[in-house]
């Protein structure tokens, strides 16, 4: 497997690197879920890497692996140049200060019994960052202010806040230990539309002010495009395409990306009517028994017989843009033509 990053990226500007990562879960009766099955990516300092995919693509599991929150079956996870794949429980503790996580549903990810101040102070207490209670309280106030909440809200409980406010608390907690990398796992998915924009703006502002690095995991293609400097598209435990948002969204090189993009509805009735949708047939296959060869071939409108035999590597489409398809851009072109015929 080749890494998704361009070769010139040096060790210092890579905050986290995952190489040929595999995470397999046993699910009884000898079956194994291949949640992540050979993923390589790196996250560079100060950037937002968008990880986009549908359910079962393994995007969240990849994020969890960066904090060693799932058992890594094979491959390596490096954070700040150190291989953390086999670190002991004790060693993992400082790792979880370097890499912090924001979860999807803020009402589930905050302990209902604790005040939000106590939740935010947890990383401080765990890592012994601010010795006294008073110092910690002061820091909690700073963090609340940073995420746009009043410092006196520290004494509230999660149920006394709105969803958007709770997610701000989740972000404040993640920032408490001054992490190098924030893994944002569907941070806006469970929020109301008008609140999603607030949270995206907040994340952007924090990144500018604090120079943060994000791994932005989402199924929302528009949000990923808006937030990311680079995007990786996942399908069934693999990265199928990676590049800048411009490259991926304007000129997708993998049939799956093209189909995914064509399936996203836009708030424009005229455009929706003349949309040439590439409809995929069937469902995502089970990760217990992924298809041989190219994983997308069972749903790919442009699949050919040898797609079942050869497992395609990522090839370079252009500088910084890679895709894993045997037939390169030809497949996408063919699909588009097919969609045109269907509508025309």
């Amino acid at each position: 497997m080749t890494t998704t990053g361009s070769t010139e990226s040096t060790a210092t500007d890579v905050v986290a690197r995952v190489t040929d990562l595999r995470v397999h879960f046993p699910v009884g009766r000898g079956s194994v879920v291949h949640a992540v099955d050979g993923v390589s990516l790196d996250v560079r300092r100060g950037e937002t890497l968008g990880l986009v995919g549908e359910s079962g693509s393994g995007k969240s599991t990849t994020g969890l692996a960066l904090l060693r929150l799932v058992h890594v079956t094979s491959g390596t996870v490096e954070v700040a140049g150190q291989d953390v794949t086999t670190w002991s429980r004790r060693q993992v503790k400082p790792l979880r200060r370097r890499v912090a996580m924001v979860f999807q549903d803020p009402s589930a990810s905050l302990d209902p019994r604790l005040t939000i101040g106590a939740s935010i102070a947890e990383p401080l207490a765990v890592h012994g960052l601010r010795g006294s209670k008073a110092e910690r309280r002061e820091r909690v106030g700073e963090l609340l202010d940073l995420v746009g909440l009043r410092p006196d809200m520290a004494d509230r409980h999660p149920h006394e806040m709105s969803g958007g406010q709770r997610q701000r608390v989740g972000i404040a907690r993640a920032l408490a230990g001054e992490p190098d990398l924030l893994v944002l796992d569907e941070p806006i998915a469970s929020l109301d539309l008008s609140v999603q924009a607030q949270i995206m703006n907040l994340l952007r502002r924090l990144q500018e002010e604090l120079g943060l690095t994000y791994l932005f995991i989402s199924h929302d293609l528009a949000a990923v495009e808006h937030m990311s400097d680079r995007v990786a598209v996942m399908y069934l435990g693999r990265i199928v395409e990676t590049g800048t948002p411009e490259q991926i969204y304007r000129n997708p090189a993998h049939p799956y990306t093209a189909a995914l993009l064509s399936a996203v509805p836009t708030a424009d009735p005229a455009r929706e009517r003349e949309r040439r949708r590439i409809t995929l047939h069937g469902d995502i296959p089970s990760p217990v028994d992924p298809p041989s060869g190219c994983r997308f071939r069972t749903r790919c409108p442009a699949a050919r017989p040898d797609c079942a035999e050869k497992d395609p590597d990522l090839y370079q489409v252009e500088e910084g843009h890679r895709a894993a398809c045997l037939y390169k851009v030809e497949a996408v072109r063919e699909m588009r033509a097919g969609a045109d015929r269907a509508t025309g």
Partner: peptide, 11 residues
Amino acid sequence: LDVTTQAQILE
């Protein structure tokens, strides 16, 4: 539902 599935259902 996922977007690709959503597209199928809408259609």
